[in-house]
Structure formats: structure tokens, C-alpha cells
């Protein structure tokens, strides 16, 4: 921690709304381990800023003028230095967040939550504690369940989840917190976090999950 305090992680903020961006910057700068080095308000600026500032983290909004935040995430996947993306979202946007996670985003945080420190959220995420909303859990569960009945060739497209991971997803989709789930399943909170991280890990494969969801829902597969 002392090392991080001495050389804070650099953060690039990609957010088109000016006040939102400013608030994010203030929150990040307030954290001793983080430093906001630049702000970009559209995709083109963001791509330029990434090359220019070589940030450690990119905080990216998904709905940007002149393109999608996914484009930024895609660009970050190809850079030569260590750089990770964190999606900032409001809520009710889980489909797109899932897409961003699949594209390689490390995790996502909610930007309209003044009571939870953005800086701490980012640090939690770095340490592997990404949140998972009920809807994302529900989506993943749906995909995993559809995989049970599908052909083995399609395994690449579907995260191969364990029964326990599916249980955790089920509980998450009902809105239960990690601690509550740990109680309900009689395990430790750490175990639940491990499960969630494992699920994220399995999600981060190069596959077309959106296509699978669509195909399943339309009964094309």
C-alpha cells in the first residue's frame, strides 16, 4: 500500500457529461492511491488521451457521443503497457455492461452513488471485488442454463459454470448481498467472492454471448 501511496495509479476519465466527470475526478483525486491525469468527453479524445498519458486505468462511460465506450475498451486491449478499463454506469444498463465485460473491462462501478466512494470502489475492483447486479446475475444464469441443453460444440460461447456458481448467481439475481448469500448457503463471504470472481473470469472469453442470448430467446438454436 505504501508503494501505491508514493506513486498513485493514473486514471483517465472518459465521460461526456461535464459535471459527472468533474465529480468523478474529485472523488478519484480524493483517494491517496489514485490520480486522475486526464478527462476525455468523446471516443476520439479518449483514444488520443490513452496514447498521450498512458494511464494505468481508464474509467469509461458506455454511452459516448461519436461512438461507444466499447470502442475505448477494445483499444485498451491492444496497448503495450498495463492498462485496465473500468466501466462507469448508472443502472438499468446491464446488457451493455455485460458486453463491456466481455470486451475486456475489468469491472463496473455505479457513478450516481454519492455514498459509496468512487475511489474505494475502483480500489476494491483492482483487488478483485467486482460487484454483480441482480440483472447481470440473471443474464449469466440464463446463458448458463441455456448451455445445459445446447450442443457441446457451442461450449465456447457459454461460460461453463459449476452448480455452486449457478446457486450464487441465483441468489444474486434475487438481490441478496454477499454476506446474506454466505449465510443462506452456509459458507464464508470470501468463498462467495471467490465464486463471483471465478464467474467473471469465465465470462472474459472471446465469445459472442449476445448472439447466444439472442439465438436462445428466438429459439434459433
Amino acid at each position: 500500500m505504501s508503494k501505491e501511496t508514493s506513486t498513485p495509479h493514473t486514471v483517465l476519465i472518459v465521460e461526456d457529461r461535464i459535471y459527472t466527470a468533474k465529480t468523478l475526478r474529485a472523488d478519484i483525486d480524493a483517494h491517496p492511491a489514485l490520480k486522475a491525469i486526464a478527462m476525455a468527453h468523446n471516443v476520439a479524445d479518449a483514444l488520443q488521451a490513452i496514447q498521450q498519458h498512458r494511464p494505468r486505468f481508464v474509467l469509461v462511460d458506455l454511452g459516448l457521443p461519436g461512438g461507444s465506450g466499447i470502442d475505448v475498451i477494445d483499444a485498451v486491449q491492444t496497448v503495450s503497457w498495463r492498462c485496465e478499463c473500468v466501466v462507469i454506469s448508472i443502472f438499468g444498463d446491464e446488457n451493455r455492461v455485460l458486453e463491456a465485460l466481455r470486451a475486456g473491462a475489468k469491472g463496473y462501478i455505479l457513478k450516481n452513488d454519492p455514498h459509496r466512494n468512487i475511489g474505494k470502489q475502483i480500489m476494491d475492483l483492482i483487488d478483485g471485488g467486482s460487484p454483480m447486479s441482480p440483472k447481470i446475475a440473471r443474464l449469466l444464469l440464463k446463458i448458463a442454463q441455456s448451455g445445459v441443453n445446447s450442443h457441446p460444440q457451442n461450449d465456447n460461447d457459454i461460460p461453463n459454470l459449476t452448480g455452486r456458481e449457478m446457486d450464487v448467481l441465483q441468489q444474486l439475481s434475487y438481490g441478496f448481498k454477499r454476506k446474506e448469500i454466505a449465510e443462506r448457503l452456509s459458507v464464508s463471504v470470501g468463498t462467495i467472492s471467490t465464486h463471483i470472481n471465478s464467474i467473471y473470469g469465465k465470462l472474459n472469453v472471446n465469445s459472442n454471448i449476445e448472439a447466444v442470448i439472442f439465438a436462445k430467446s428466438k429459439k434459433l438454436l
Binding site: 448508472i90 450516481n112 459509496r116 441482480p134 440483472k135 446475475a137 439475481s173
Partner: peptide, 29 residues
């Protein structure tokens, strides 16, 4: 958010309730 939730068409109420919980949390905090 609620309107978006309902537009997305989750079949079961439980996920909608779960989403509601995550949204209402800042207010409760």
C-alpha cells in the same frame, strides 16, 4: 431505471425485486 427494467422484460419478479433493492440502497444508506 424501473421503466428500463420493465422494458427489458425479465420474466420473473424476483430479479426485478433484486434490481429494485440495488437501486434503493443509496437512499436507505
Amino acid at each position: 431505471a424501473l421503466i428500463i427494467d420493465s422494458l427489458e422484460g425479465y420474466e420473473d419478479l424476483s430479479t426485478l425485486l433484486g434490481s429494485l433493492r440495488s437501486r434503493i440502497e443509496p437512499l436507505l444508506d
